[in-house]
Design a protein around this nucleic acid. Sequence first.
DNA 1: ATCATTGATTTCTCTAGAGAAGTCCCGCAC
DNA 2: GTGCGGGACTTCTCTAGAGAAATCAATGAT
Lengths: 250, 250
Amino acid sequence: MTESPVHHESPIYRRIADRLRDQILSGALGDGDRLPGENALMNEYGIARATARQALAVLINEGLAVPKRGSGVYVRLFRPIRRHGSRRLSREQWAQGLAIWDSDTRGRSYTVDEVRILRETASEHVGRVLGAEEVWVRRRRYSVDGRPVQLAASFFPADLVEGTAVVLPDTGPGGVYARLGELGHAPVHFSEEVRARMPLPGETELLNLPAGTPVISVTRVAFAEGGVAVEVNEMTLDAASYVLQYDFDA
Amino acid sequence: MTESPVHHESPIYRRIADRLRDQILSGALGDGDRLPGENALMNEYGIARATARQALAVLINEGLAVPKRGSGVYVRLFRPIRRHGSRRLSREQWAQGLAIWDSDTRGRSYTVDEVRILRETASEHVGRVLGAEEVWVRRRRYSVDGRPVQLAASFFPADLVEGTAVVLPDTGPGGVYARLGELGHAPVHFSEEVRARMPLPGETELLNLPAGTPVISVTRVAFAEGGVAVEVNEMTLDAASYVLQYDFDA
DNA sequence: ATCATTGATTTCTCTAGAGAAGTCCCGCAC
DNA sequence: GTGCGGGACTTCTCTAGAGAAATCAATGAT
């Protein structure tokens, strides 16, 4: 709308941040290297501590650096630790024993309103898509190589899965869908919505996310024969660990 | 690794941020509403200006609020403005005239090394996947409803597309692939990698991103018959505007 | 009515200083 | 060698203050 941005002189903290960023992106400072700290910047540029902090804060919430209290600020290059195909997501991982779930809140029934009050991310989808008054919720946290990388919540129509834990046991991945198949509701089609956003505080702790790390949020709806939705799956993934991969034909 | 987090008392700025966040997430403060500013927080809690700023900064880089200099700090709920299926991405949009590209750097040939020096996000892919010494680059920026929402760079093997602009004219979406088809290299398979990260400074300006907005980065490789890669497409999307949608069968 | 100016309000940048809390390493006791 | 203090260093939290820069509404001139 307005005219081209007149280039006011950048503030000091930003110029310092730019210099540091250049050093990171050019490779002069590598992953895990230590950045000049508050004191170093104060001396080098003759600035106040708050200003030095501000410069470092820029890099920190760009996700290029991580502060470690009492120690220093370190370069953190964005390097995904593992790649997952979105569909065959964990099968090989599970087979190799690399992936585990380290917490599994057993499912129980909630009314759609209860879910909404719990402020599930999926709340709107669950009611609308699943078209059920009562849903069955199953929460998990997945870890790979000891690091938590994914939170998941699955919602099933309660009338479909009466019996809960017995019907949908913890038999690893695929187990749930296999059971749904035995009940005559095998999923045959999936629709996924992928978003990126900043994590909320709870997610920051559960996924152990350093500052400046966004999360990938995937909502997957599974449909059985006839177009009936049988599951809504909300996944929150550490974006530093995950790369989603999709393959499809023209 | 270490034992469970002892719950020290949260610092003041964080408690204030938590209170404000609750008001936002509970709906007491809606999209576009004005948050209490620095002065208001100073008076209300009896804290220094820097501390009040720190509280607001938490919400700002969580992406829940946007500061407007000289005016105030406003709630910004994460509400995608438009949804795209990843494949039929823009076809309807273009037909309705809602989408445009407002900059189109005509392609020219670069060596793979040149591309690497330009530090394209896709640099590594381009050399490896395309298996070409020289590539043809095409850059675009897409806007929807006057807002820039997507940066894109396409890489083609140079020996495939000699003649550049004539061979791959700006005929809107599909045009490029149609032309590739006429040349006998119609893409029949796509593979996409989806990442989320924080934007780099250039992207912040080009996409006009408010603080705290992550970007979705999609790398799409198009394969022709026989498994030959004919295009690498690097897309950077404003995550506040985009929701990617993928549909596939079991 | 339209346009320019002024003034109050608000965020932004920066200084100076101080104590708390966590990390890291060296040296000492065992 | 092993473990335990202690001290140096670093980031974190917070205070107090001041000028710059942008916004917004009201006021006044044309």
